[in-house]
Design a protein around this nucleic acid. Sequence first.
DNA 1: GCAAAACAGCGAAACGTTACGCGTTTGTTC
DNA 2: GAACAAACGCGTAACGTTTCGCTGTTTTGC
Lengths: 333, 333
Amino acid sequence: MAATIRDIRKQTGLSLATISKYLNGGNVLPENREKIEASIRDLHYEVNEIARGLVTNRTKTIGMIVYDIESMFSGVLIRHVGDFLRKEGYALLVCDSCNDEAIEADNVRFLLNKKVEGIVITPVSWKADFLLPAQHKNVPVVLMDRSFAGTDFDCVKIDNRAAGYRAAQYLIKRGHRRIAIIASSVEYTGWERYKGFKEAMDEQGLSLPEEYCRIGVHTIEFGYESMQKLLGLSERPTAVLMTNYETSLGAVMAVNESEYDCPDDISMMGFDDLIMSHVVKPKLCMVVQPMKEMCEKAVGLILTQINNPEDRPPIELSMGTTLRDGNSVKPLQ
Amino acid sequence: MAATIRDIRKQTGLSLATISKYLNGGNVLPENREKIEASIRDLHYEVNEIARGLVTNRTKTIGMIVYDIESMFSGVLIRHVGDFLRKEGYALLVCDSCNDEAIEADNVRFLLNKKVEGIVITPVSWKADFLLPAQHKNVPVVLMDRSFAGTDFDCVKIDNRAAGYRAAQYLIKRGHRRIAIIASSVEYTGWERYKGFKEAMDEQGLSLPEEYCRIGVHTIEFGYESMQKLLGLSERPTAVLMTNYETSLGAVMAVNESEYDCPDDISMMGFDDLIMSHVVKPKLCMVVQPMKEMCEKAVGLILTQINNPEDRPPIELSMGTTLRDGNSVKPLQ
DNA sequence: GCAAAACAGCGAAACGTTACGCGTTTGTTC
DNA sequence: GAACAAACGCGTAACGTTTCGCTGTTTTGC
């Protein structure tokens, strides 16, 4: 059906080798170049990437596995990673792990089977085991947002501990003493943010009663329930830090439905300035990650690994965060 | 590097043809079957989909183009379409049009170049021109959510006119007379919903002053500005219908930031029950689309077209919507 | 001018599958 | 036990590229 280089050979009288050379940017005699170009226009020829892939062993395709595609965080990631890859002629195969380790492992196998040249992933699992098949096949992997201790994969994330630390500082500086935290223990990210938070509290000699410490899963529901419990305490905290997007939302919901007002009765601080944060009232103070830059770095890392497959120690990029002001934190006298 | 069927031939002594037959589910003598299976285990053999694709002309890959991946609507669509496809062994290549017709046209070319077997798309453009290359190459296309008048593509969407009509009715039944609408004129969907709304208003003999009719683009900003303008009118509407997710959010923002209260000062009704709607206060009354079912149908349509490429008239599936109660509409005695 | 070097082009062999048409074996029936 | 059908297996030719090693032909530098 579609034209092949054989058809071009027929029209131009040149050999397959020469035509292929032209297609790949090699030098060809000007008159031959013209012949080929005319023929390509005439036949509407387009390179068959499948056939090319078979011999070059390259598919110009990258796989992306996100922990949960319904999270807006994932949407933003996919957009930017996709954009940057497109500029390099790569396509993006998207898989959703639905926060499930088994699905995640399956996704890796699926993508490898599709012969992707690299995998960008926001992992669900704590351990790197499920990535072994990729390592085995020498398919480069770049972790985003989350990572595991002591593995040999490139990784792009924020300095989670510093982010937690600064968020706590922000609240403390504004006079808060009874500060609660809602964090996720499901992934590395959550723990680090928690540790940073704890560090700042300890430094100031502030105690963190057990009931102020809501460590659980990474869901809207958990944020919601946790905030409800915090609001129900006889000694309510004056401020709450939510260390991820989902719990931030859940917590806002709970406050909005309660009899309490933010920031008058309770101050709140969230994570990740995705669009939804603008729409909730009050406007949340938050820690924001440089999403676009992270994606750019991740794409850069995966492409260098693909193009220079030398053995080098893994690179871990830790990006800074910024604090965005809002009106959800009330300064206490 | 990786094992091929030639390696299996060497181990089993069988021919390539027999092994291929086995791999594709053909009948093989039990003893040979065992030999092959043992060899596959031994060599960790996996079919090379690229090579298979070259001869079968099938890539087991579908392309999905969304009008804007940062919209949560798109996220949900991608998730479900991806899920359903996965069950059939298909992978999903995702492209983002960023609400830009030029990028959209480019996406189609890109996907065709990647040899996808079909394209599922929520189009930005009003005209089908940019899909011509797909039609030309006999690559099936299924439109989702939005469509164009009189084209020959399968399409899955809701009955937008009925949805607009029912939403208006809901408000009218609760005593509202001065009802405004915020809709998008950018895509078909928005117009249809507007028409349904207008029809219900006309039937009840209710007038729709020009300043109650905010027809514009499909963005949070537009929803925000429109609501601000409506609230600033000397004769404010008692209720506002927002006909898509983005404008619903923007409108909620505007009300939240204003001096007015919903539903006491103004009633609101939105579209699309995505997660964000739970988090905003008040809980919005809304028209909800059967997202998952729509995706299932879309995948079904694209797969039938792929597997039975007979010429048949295009199928347009119009799904029903449901009204979800909230507390953003105040009954006026 | 002449050897050496650089350049263009070519044929043929990959890459790892599936598809086709034809033998060979096996089993059934009269 | 002959005849025939069904089941199974095989060799080989695709699929549409790239790549390798080779042959001529031009350019370069002294």
